[in-house]
Simulated scan of single mutants.
Amino acid sequence: MDRREVLSTIPKAVNLYIIHSEFTRLPYIECDDKTFDDVAFFFDIKENADKKSKELLEKKQKNTVVELNQEGILRAFTHLVIAGVDAIKYNCQGEDYVIQLNEIVKLSDFSDLPPEKRPVENRTLQLTMLYFAQEIRANIDNPNTPEIHDMEEEMMVNILKARFLVPVREVEVEGQTQMQMLMIKLGENGGSMIPVFTDNIEFDKMPNDETVKKTIIDAKSLINFPLTPECDGFLINPMGVSLPLNAGIINNLKNMEITSADKE
Protein backbone atom coordinates (compact mmCIF):
# COMPACT_ATOMS: atom_id res chain seq x y z
CA MET A 1 0.00 0.00 0.00
CA ASP A 2 1.53 3.32 -1.02
CA ARG A 3 1.40 6.46 1.08
CA ARG A 4 -1.45 8.04 -0.90
CA GLU A 5 -3.62 4.96 -0.37
CA VAL A 6 -2.81 4.95 3.34
CA LEU A 7 -3.78 8.60 3.65
CA SER A 8 -7.11 7.95 1.92
CA THR A 9 -8.03 5.25 4.46
CA ILE A 10 -7.99 7.61 7.45
CA PRO A 11 -11.23 9.56 6.73
CA LYS A 12 -13.00 6.25 6.07
CA ALA A 13 -11.79 4.51 9.23
CA VAL A 14 -14.62 3.31 11.46
CA ASN A 15 -12.26 3.02 14.39
CA LEU A 16 -8.55 3.44 15.13
CA TYR A 17 -6.38 2.84 18.18
CA ILE A 18 -4.20 5.45 19.86
CA ILE A 19 -1.58 5.26 22.61
CA HIS A 20 -2.49 7.43 25.61
CA SER A 21 0.00 8.39 28.29
CA GLU A 22 -1.18 7.61 31.81
CA PHE A 23 1.01 10.48 33.03
CA THR A 24 -0.85 13.13 31.03
CA ARG A 25 -4.20 11.43 30.23
CA LEU A 26 -3.54 12.60 26.66
CA PRO A 27 -1.95 11.00 23.59
CA TYR A 28 1.61 9.84 24.15
CA ILE A 29 3.99 12.11 22.21
CA GLU A 30 7.45 11.28 20.90
CA CYS A 31 10.00 12.91 18.60
CA ASP A 32 10.40 10.66 15.56
CA ASP A 33 14.04 9.64 15.21
CA LYS A 34 13.97 9.89 11.40
CA THR A 35 11.78 12.87 10.54
CA PHE A 36 12.17 14.72 13.91
CA ASP A 37 8.43 15.39 13.86
CA ASP A 38 6.53 15.38 17.15
CA VAL A 39 4.17 12.46 16.64
CA ALA A 40 1.28 10.64 18.28
CA PHE A 41 0.79 6.94 17.59
CA PHE A 42 -2.24 5.58 15.71
CA PHE A 43 -2.96 1.99 14.65
CA ASP A 44 -5.56 0.25 12.53
CA ILE A 45 -4.99 -3.10 14.29
CA LYS A 46 -5.23 -3.40 18.08
CA GLU A 47 -2.57 -6.12 18.34
CA ASN A 48 0.00 -3.75 16.83
CA ALA A 49 -1.05 -1.01 19.25
CA ASP A 50 -0.65 -3.47 22.15
CA LYS A 51 2.86 -4.31 20.95
CA LYS A 52 3.86 -0.63 20.94
CA SER A 53 2.28 -0.21 24.36
CA LYS A 54 4.50 -2.95 25.79
CA GLU A 55 7.60 -1.34 24.28
CA LEU A 56 6.77 1.95 25.98
CA LEU A 57 6.13 0.23 29.31
CA GLU A 58 9.68 -1.15 29.15
CA LYS A 59 10.83 2.51 29.00
CA LYS A 60 8.75 3.27 32.13
CA GLN A 61 6.19 5.18 30.02
CA LYS A 62 2.90 4.02 31.51
CA ASN A 63 0.20 4.04 28.85
CA THR A 64 -3.07 2.60 27.66
CA VAL A 65 -4.43 1.69 24.24
CA VAL A 66 -7.61 3.66 23.52
CA GLU A 67 -10.09 2.76 20.81
CA LEU A 68 -11.50 5.75 18.90
CA ASN A 69 -14.67 5.86 16.82
CA GLN A 70 -14.99 8.24 13.86
CA GLU A 71 -16.01 11.18 16.04
CA GLY A 72 -13.22 10.42 18.49
CA ILE A 73 -10.64 10.25 15.68
CA LEU A 74 -11.52 13.75 14.47
CA ARG A 75 -11.55 15.09 18.02
CA ALA A 76 -8.12 13.57 18.67
CA PHE A 77 -6.66 15.20 15.56
CA THR A 78 -8.07 18.59 16.59
CA HIS A 79 -6.64 18.33 20.11
CA LEU A 80 -3.25 17.28 18.75
CA VAL A 81 -3.11 20.38 16.54
CA ILE A 82 -3.91 22.64 19.52
CA ALA A 83 -1.21 20.85 21.51
CA GLY A 84 1.41 21.68 18.87
CA VAL A 85 1.88 18.16 17.51
CA ASP A 86 3.18 18.07 13.93
CA ALA A 87 2.16 14.64 12.74
CA ILE A 88 0.94 11.16 13.52
CA LYS A 89 2.85 7.93 13.13
CA TYR A 90 0.16 5.73 11.63
CA ASN A 91 0.75 1.99 11.70
CA CYS A 92 -1.38 0.71 8.83
CA GLN A 93 -1.36 -3.02 8.14
CA GLY A 94 1.86 -3.34 10.13
CA GLU A 95 3.80 -0.58 8.32
CA ASP A 96 4.61 2.81 9.84
CA TYR A 97 3.81 6.05 7.98
CA VAL A 98 4.50 9.55 9.28
CA ILE A 99 1.63 11.76 8.15
CA GLN A 100 1.47 15.50 8.78
CA LEU A 101 -1.69 16.63 10.54
CA ASN A 102 -2.23 19.34 7.92
CA GLU A 103 -2.65 16.52 5.39
CA ILE A 104 -5.58 15.16 7.42
CA VAL A 105 -7.35 18.16 8.92
CA LYS A 106 -7.67 21.75 7.76
CA LEU A 107 -5.71 24.02 10.07
CA SER A 108 -7.02 27.50 10.77
CA ASP A 109 -4.73 30.33 9.72
CA PHE A 110 -5.01 33.48 11.84
CA SER A 111 -1.82 35.12 10.60
CA ASP A 112 -3.75 37.87 8.79
CA LEU A 113 -5.44 38.94 12.02
CA PRO A 114 -3.78 41.49 14.30
CA PRO A 115 -2.20 39.78 17.36
CA GLU A 116 -4.85 41.11 19.76
CA LYS A 117 -7.65 39.46 17.72
CA ARG A 118 -6.03 36.06 17.28
CA PRO A 119 -7.38 33.27 19.48
CA VAL A 120 -5.12 32.41 22.40
CA GLU A 121 -3.09 29.32 21.53
CA ASN A 122 0.18 28.23 23.04
CA ARG A 123 1.05 25.19 20.98
CA THR A 124 4.78 25.21 21.69
CA LEU A 125 4.20 25.58 25.42
CA GLN A 126 1.57 22.83 25.41
CA LEU A 127 3.97 20.50 23.63
CA THR A 128 6.86 21.13 26.02
CA MET A 129 4.50 20.62 28.98
CA LEU A 130 3.48 17.23 27.56
CA TYR A 131 7.07 16.12 27.04
CA PHE A 132 8.10 17.36 30.49
CA ALA A 133 5.21 15.60 32.23
CA GLN A 134 5.90 12.32 30.43
CA GLU A 135 9.61 12.34 31.25
CA ILE A 136 9.61 13.58 34.82
CA ARG A 137 6.87 11.15 35.87
CA ALA A 138 8.57 8.24 34.12
CA ASN A 139 11.78 9.14 35.99
CA ILE A 140 10.29 10.11 39.33
CA ASP A 141 13.20 8.42 41.15
CA ASN A 142 15.78 10.34 39.13
CA PRO A 143 14.30 13.70 38.06
CA ASN A 144 17.66 15.45 37.59
CA THR A 145 18.69 14.03 34.24
CA PRO A 146 20.16 16.40 31.61
CA GLU A 147 17.21 15.63 29.32
CA ILE A 148 14.65 16.68 31.91
CA HIS A 149 16.68 19.79 32.77
CA ASP A 150 16.76 20.80 29.09
CA MET A 151 12.99 20.24 28.78
CA GLU A 152 12.36 22.36 31.86
CA GLU A 153 14.46 25.22 30.50
CA GLU A 154 12.67 25.10 27.15
CA MET A 155 9.31 25.06 28.91
CA MET A 156 10.23 28.13 30.96
CA VAL A 157 11.25 30.01 27.80
CA ASN A 158 7.91 29.11 26.23
CA ILE A 159 6.03 30.33 29.31
CA LEU A 160 7.63 33.76 28.87
CA LYS A 161 6.37 33.87 25.26
CA ALA A 162 2.83 32.87 26.16
CA ARG A 163 -0.50 34.62 26.51
CA PHE A 164 -3.01 33.10 28.92
CA LEU A 165 -6.76 33.02 29.36
CA VAL A 166 -7.64 33.92 32.94
CA PRO A 167 -11.11 33.49 34.48
CA VAL A 168 -12.37 36.60 36.26
CA ARG A 169 -15.56 37.70 38.00
CA GLU A 170 -16.99 41.20 38.28
CA VAL A 171 -17.20 42.50 41.86
CA GLU A 172 -18.33 45.80 43.35
CA VAL A 173 -15.68 47.55 45.45
CA GLU A 174 -16.64 50.91 46.97
CA GLY A 175 -19.21 51.50 44.26
CA GLN A 176 -16.85 50.61 41.41
CA THR A 177 -16.87 47.47 39.26
CA GLN A 178 -13.60 45.55 39.32
CA MET A 179 -12.48 42.29 37.76
CA GLN A 180 -11.36 39.76 40.34
CA MET A 181 -9.29 36.66 39.52
CA LEU A 182 -10.53 33.33 40.82
CA MET A 183 -8.59 31.01 43.11
CA ILE A 184 -8.75 27.25 43.45
CA LYS A 185 -7.77 25.27 46.54
CA LEU A 186 -5.34 22.40 45.97
CA GLY A 187 -6.49 19.78 48.43
CA GLU A 188 -6.82 20.25 52.17
CA ASN A 189 -3.21 21.35 52.74
CA GLY A 190 -2.20 22.30 49.20
CA GLY A 191 -2.73 26.04 49.37
CA SER A 192 -4.56 28.14 46.76
CA MET A 193 -3.58 29.21 43.25
CA ILE A 194 -5.00 31.32 40.44
CA PRO A 195 -6.00 29.14 37.45
CA VAL A 196 -4.77 30.22 33.99
CA PHE A 197 -5.29 28.46 30.68
CA THR A 198 -3.30 28.01 27.47
CA ASP A 199 -6.33 27.91 25.12
CA ASN A 200 -10.11 27.78 24.89
CA ILE A 201 -10.26 23.97 24.98
CA GLU A 202 -8.54 23.98 28.37
CA PHE A 203 -10.60 26.96 29.59
CA ASP A 204 -13.86 25.19 28.69
CA LYS A 205 -12.98 22.31 31.01
CA MET A 206 -13.96 24.59 33.90
CA PRO A 207 -17.41 24.05 35.42
CA ASN A 208 -19.94 26.22 33.61
CA ASP A 209 -20.52 29.48 35.47
CA GLU A 210 -22.24 32.39 33.71
CA THR A 211 -20.76 34.88 36.18
CA VAL A 212 -17.21 33.99 35.09
CA LYS A 213 -15.66 35.79 32.14
CA LYS A 214 -12.29 35.39 30.50
CA THR A 215 -9.54 37.92 30.03
CA ILE A 216 -6.19 37.66 28.26
CA ILE A 217 -2.93 38.26 30.12
CA ASP A 218 0.58 37.98 28.72
CA ALA A 219 3.31 36.23 30.67
CA LYS A 220 5.11 39.44 31.64
CA SER A 221 1.98 40.86 33.25
CA LEU A 222 1.21 37.53 34.87
CA ILE A 223 4.54 37.04 36.64
CA ASN A 224 4.54 40.65 37.82
CA PHE A 225 0.98 40.49 39.16
CA PRO A 226 0.94 41.25 42.92
CA LEU A 227 -0.18 38.14 44.79
CA THR A 228 -2.09 38.24 48.06
CA PRO A 229 -0.63 36.37 51.08
CA GLU A 230 -3.20 33.58 50.75
CA CYS A 231 -2.28 32.94 47.10
CA ASP A 232 0.64 30.61 46.30
CA GLY A 233 0.92 31.50 42.61
CA PHE A 234 -0.64 30.37 39.35
CA LEU A 235 -1.68 26.96 38.04
CA ILE A 236 -1.54 26.46 34.28
CA ASN A 237 -4.32 24.19 32.93
CA PRO A 238 -5.59 22.84 36.30
CA MET A 239 -7.98 20.41 34.56
CA GLY A 240 -5.35 19.10 32.14
CA VAL A 241 -1.58 18.62 32.20
CA SER A 242 -1.23 21.16 34.96
CA LEU A 243 1.89 23.14 35.80
CA PRO A 244 2.17 25.17 39.04
CA LEU A 245 3.99 28.50 39.00
CA ASN A 246 4.88 29.06 42.65
CA ALA A 247 6.91 31.93 44.07
CA GLY A 248 10.24 30.25 43.30
CA ILE A 249 9.37 29.57 39.65
CA ILE A 250 7.93 33.07 39.24
CA ASN A 251 11.19 34.58 40.51
CA ASN A 252 13.15 32.40 38.08
CA LEU A 253 10.92 33.60 35.25
CA LYS A 254 11.47 37.23 36.27
CA ASN A 255 15.24 36.69 36.26
CA MET A 256 15.05 35.02 32.84
CA GLU A 257 13.04 37.97 31.54
CA ILE A 258 15.63 40.46 32.84
CA THR A 259 18.52 38.45 31.38
CA SER A 260 16.75 38.20 28.02
CA ALA A 261 16.11 41.96 27.97
CA ASP A 262 19.79 42.66 28.79
CA LYS A 263 20.89 40.63 25.78
CA GLU A 264 18.72 42.58 23.32
Rank of each mutant, 00 (worst) to 15 (best):
E22M: 13
T228W: 02
D150A: 07
K185N: 11
G94M: 05
I29F: 06
H20K: 07
N208S: 08
V6E: 00
Q70W: 03
Q178H: 10
N189T: 15
K60T: 10
F203C: 12
G191M: 00
T211I: 10
L57F: 15
P146R: 00
E67W: 01
P238I: 01
E58P: 12
D33A: 08
D44V: 05
S111T: 10
D109Y: 06
N200K: 09
R3E: 03
P207Y: 01
Q70E: 02
V166T: 15
I82M: 07
L130A: 09
R123Q: 14
F23L: 14
F43R: 01
R25I: 13
K254Y: 01
F197W: 14
L245Y: 02
E71I: 02
E30H: 11
I104A: 06
V81F: 10
S8P: 02
M151L: 04
L125R: 08
C231E: 03
N246I: 05
L182E: 04
K161W: 08
E174R: 08
V173I: 15
I136T: 01
E174I: 12
E152V: 00
T211C: 07
Q70G: 00
N251D: 04
L80R: 02
L160D: 04
K52G: 15
L16A: 08
E30D: 15
N102E: 15
R163K: 13
R3T: 06
Q176D: 14
A13M: 06
M155V: 03
D44I: 05
T215Y: 12
Y131S: 06
H20Q: 12
T145N: 01
P229D: 03
V173P: 12
E264R: 08
D33F: 10
